[in-house]
């Protein structure tokens, strides 16, 4: 698809900004999101191509503003909902529960 992910040759995105002494994961959730890749891949049976395509379908403005592991999270949710392992309602209910201090 002619999506925002197809970045080669695009102008106006600014300089490349390396970070000194960069940690592998900047926040704990990034490590959990990373590890969910191998863990969900093993039971859910999606392909890396399907995973990449799910990332490509992130709305363009959000794609540019969000981090790499947010892209992954979006793709896990898509792949797992598509296969019926979780539903949007389950996820939203649990997010609300966590936001109100629940487990």
């Amino acid at each position: 698809m002619n999506g925002i992910h197809d970045l080669g040759g695009m102008h106006g995105l600014g300089p490349v900004v390396p970070e000194q002494d960069e940690p592998v994961f900047h926040e704990k959730w990034e490590g959990r999101a990373f590890a969910l890749f191998a863990s969900t891949f093993v039971f859910a049976g999606y392909t890396v191509d399907e995973f990449r395509h799910a990332i490509e379908k992130i709305p363009p403005a959000h794609y540019l503003e969000s981090s790499y592991y947010e892209h992954w999270l979006f793709a896990f949710e898509e792949a797992l909902m598509k296969r019926g392992f979780v539903t949007r309602e389950e996820l939203d209910a649990r997010i609300a529960q966590l936001k109100s201090g629940g487990p």
């Binding site: 698809m1 002619n2 197809d6 080669g8 040759g9 191509d49 399907e50 990449r52 395509h53 490509e56």
Partner: peptide
Amino acid sequence: HNPTTHTRLPGY
């Protein structure tokens, strides 16, 4: 080609 589906051919 301009598929609306997944491809690994970069547009450029």
